[in-house]
Amino acid sequence: MYEGFFSGRVITNLFADNAALGIAAVVMTLVILSGGIDLSVGSMLGFTTILIAVLVQQKGMHPLSAIAIALGIGTVFGAFMGFLIHRYDLPPFLVTLGGMFLARGMAFVISKESLGIENAFYNHMADFGIPLGGKAALSATALIYLLLFALGIVVTHFTPFGRNIYALGGSEPSARLMGVPIGSTKIAVYALSGFGAALAGAVSTFYTTSGNPTTGGGFELDVIASVVIGGTLLTGGVGTQLGTLAGVLIFGTIHSALDFDGRLNSYWLRIAIGGLLLIFILFQRFLTRTSALTR
């Protein structure tokens, strides 16, 4: 129906265009597996873009230093939310909701308007690409996403830390009695989430070569939707990084399909995602119920 839709280039673009979403989804998977949620990632992404833009354009900082600072702030911010959640036994939903407003406010404190980035380093990044044959090439943003995804797989599925996250989401009281370090695991999960959101912000400055305090409104919900479509249970304890990759690609494919067909409007994306989300949740429920019956 759409000629050229499944070319190699479209596939690499799928990764490049959804790098920010994918990166945030890798860490959001950890958060949701642990039985939590992080609503602050969209605001954190917006904050990061404008922070980097201002540091590079107005303070004349090297982009790499600016990005390092942004990643540091994101990590500390996330760790602080994790600390509140753990220390005072607060619901993650509320704490990260507070974090969401806070980060968005901070973004506007830095600059009320969007700011373009003109910098040699950014030009290099835009030109960077690992040729994969044909017209397809792996861009810097896609590469960062794939690296983080690989790292995510290792951390989630092959480390004791990953097991602790699953245990935490499966049953927190049991995990405590089994000697899982609840506090440090939780704080680490939210710190990673803040780091991931900041990295997503940095990647999005590569993509748009600008910073904008309004970027990422509703982004956190796209991320959560991708993770859930990928089969991770919102109650925690069940899910895989591979599933999340599928969720991100499904999300991205619908996005691309709508871009490809100029007649369709962006609200169709929302409708499609909404419908899909409902279908997937029903599907999950159906699967868990049949597996419970066959026991």
């Binding site: 004791p160 097991r163 245990a167 049953s171 009281p173 995990a175 000697g179 899982v180």
Partner: peptide, 18 residues
């Protein structure tokens, strides 16, 4: 029983000292 129902048997036996 204070174990994690969603994890595997091996994970449950060895959690925290894998």
């Amino acid at each position: 029983v204070n174990l994690i129902p969603t994890l595997s048997i091996a994970d449950n036996i060895l959690l925290g000292r894998q």
